[in-house]
Amino acid sequence: MSEMLRAPVEVKYADELDYLASVDTDSKPFSWRLSPRMVRLFVLGSERADGLDRVIPQKWFGDRSFVERSIVTLASDRGLLLIGDPGTGKSWLAELLAAAICRNSTLVVQGTAGTTEDHVKYSWNVSMVIGRGQSRESMIPSPIMTAMEQGVIGRFEELTRSTSDVQDALISILSEKYVSIPELDHDNIVFAKPGFSIIATANSRDRGVNDLSSALKRRFNFVRIPVVTNKRSEAEIVRFRTEELLRRHRIEVEVPPTLLDILLQSFADLRTAAAGATSDDEKLESALSTAEQIGVLEDAILHSQFFGDRALRAETLAGSLMGSLARRSPEDLAILNKYLHGVVEPRAKQDGGGWEDFLDGGRQAIAALS
């Protein structure tokens, strides 16, 4: 694991998964490695009432019903589509579910404008085809086909970013549960084994890019992941994910509660301003998601570690926030400057403390970026 920049969930939490499997006495659907109850426990963490002799930490922060509905869907013969705004934890939840269910979260297709039907079904090893002809040995299965053959979970990220022909390729897989290989005369059908399913994710802001057909929608159960609005839950997410990201740098740091409050309040203020904007020019290009808060905090901590005195300060946090959110010039810079003078400055005069330093750091960052 120390040789991986980012270890898959099933590697990172292998000890937990082994432990849960050893105490799991419930029935399991298909070839699942854990029962639905244990899958939920792995994702949402253990409670005293679970009666375990070790604590399982919470890894995804959200409504319990979303996780339960996702697990129930995967235990049926339907695909699961997690849809929501950027940064709501869709991909993280998909990875956690795949790791808990089949101990393999790496069978992933990334949806882009360049994704082709071959990425969903199969392609060919050209040199082997030239030398021996087309055969099952010269075929290169896609991650989805591999998931079918093994009876495990395949993942499809950003489904609505892929073109309609790629999406159509999923329809027969999800409904018929097999893939035909017309190039072969024999052994030309790959059937899905029990346990196969697909977890797809879609960004709700990509609506209109490549909308899903009604036929494909019918093959999925939709679970909509909302933006986290509860300040306490969002603080837990930001703290948990930031600490995870910093461990790769072997950095253990305590984020001062006052600075975390400033970060959360700043994003809340900017979201409120965006909601009241009358045009796109009055909105930041950033989605202002929880994921972006995590990125801002990680950036500020690393800057403090490498170029400061290792203590996270409000000025550094402000600089990271301005640098991360100012993507357009002059539009975003004008919005951030207005926020500093219209919201942060009065708050600094009234509350003082970290807000004064945050204001100074924000002004310096705006000046440098202008």
Rank of each mutant, 00 (worst) to 15 (best):
D77I: 02
R78E: 04
G79H: 03
G79E: 03
L80G: 04
L80H: 00
L80S: 03
L80K: 01
L80N: 02
L80V: 02
L81R: 00
L82C: 06
L82W: 11
L82V: 01
I83Y: 02
I83A: 14
I83T: 08
I83N: 02
I83K: 08
G84L: 04
G84N: 03
G84V: 08
G84H: 04
D85W: 01
D85P: 02
P86T: 05
P86E: 05
P86H: 07
P86M: 07
P86L: 03
P86K: 07
G87F: 00
G87E: 01
G87D: 01
G87Q: 02
T88F: 09
T88G: 07
T88P: 07
T88Q: 08
T88V: 15
G89C: 02
G89Q: 00
K90Y: 09
S91D: 09
S91N: 11
S91E: 08
W92F: 13
W92P: 00
W92M: 12
L93A: 06
L93T: 07
L93K: 07
L93M: 14
L93H: 07
A94Q: 01
A94N: 06
E95A: 14
E95S: 14
E95Y: 11
L96S: 08
L96P: 04
L96G: 07
L97K: 13
L97S: 10
L97C: 12
A98H: 10
A98F: 03
A98I: 05
A98C: 11
A98S: 15
A99F: 10
A99Y: 10
A99V: 04
A99I: 09
A99H: 12
A100H: 03
A100D: 09
A100P: 01
A100G: 13
I101A: 15
I101W: 02
I101F: 09
C102R: 05
C102E: 00
C102S: 15
R103H: 12
R103S: 10
R103Q: 12
R103L: 06
N104Q: 14
S105E: 13
S105Y: 01
T106Q: 15
T106P: 00
L107Y: 04
L107W: 05
V108P: 00
V108M: 12
V108G: 05
V108D: 03
V108I: 15
V109M: 09
V109A: 10
V109E: 12
Q110D: 06
G111K: 08
G111N: 03
G111D: 02
T112Q: 09
T112A: 12
T112L: 08
A113L: 10
A113F: 08
A113V: 12
A113C: 00
G114D: 15
G114E: 14
G114W: 06
T115Y: 12
T116Q: 10
T116W: 05
T116F: 10
E117T: 15
E117C: 08
E117V: 15
D118A: 15
H119C: 13
H119W: 06
H119P: 00
V120E: 03
K121S: 11
K121N: 11
Y122P: 02
Y122G: 01
Y122S: 03
S123Q: 06
S123G: 13
W124K: 08
W124S: 03
W124Y: 14
N125I: 13
N125V: 12
N125C: 13
N125W: 07
N125P: 02
